[in-house]
Amino acid sequence: MNREANIFLNCLLGLALILTLGMSAALEAADAEQGRLLYRENCAQCHGLEGSGKGINAPHLEVAPRNHTDYEEMNARTNEELFKAISEGGQAVNKSVLMPNWGHTLSEEDINNLIAFLRKLCCEQ
């Protein structure tokens, strides 16, 4: 590998590290209680008040909403993937178009709060 390619690769790795650390820092500061309130207002209509994926709209959807209490499923998703799914919608992560993009409505802080709540819901039993 020549020197320029090496520098380019190192820059990419550095950038990825900065982004990952940035996301981790944002999540550390996130407020799961705020996330719970946002979840009730916005997500529970499809994902259910308890996050089981069985909200009041679920029987009328052609694709079942994600069960957010499923440890295996949720543990297999990174925080970055969850952020992308919420912000850009299901289609952006090769999932259902029925999951809307919330990035025009919720702030980055809101979405990080939601992810903090989702992590409690799925994985802190």
Partner: peptide, 16 residues
């Protein structure tokens, strides 16, 4: 995906 939350006929669509 509007039908997830809204009904476009009395029989079909979401409820919220």
């Amino acid at each position: 995906g509007c039908g997830g939350c809204h009904r476009d006929t009395p029989e079909y669509g979401g409820l919220s």
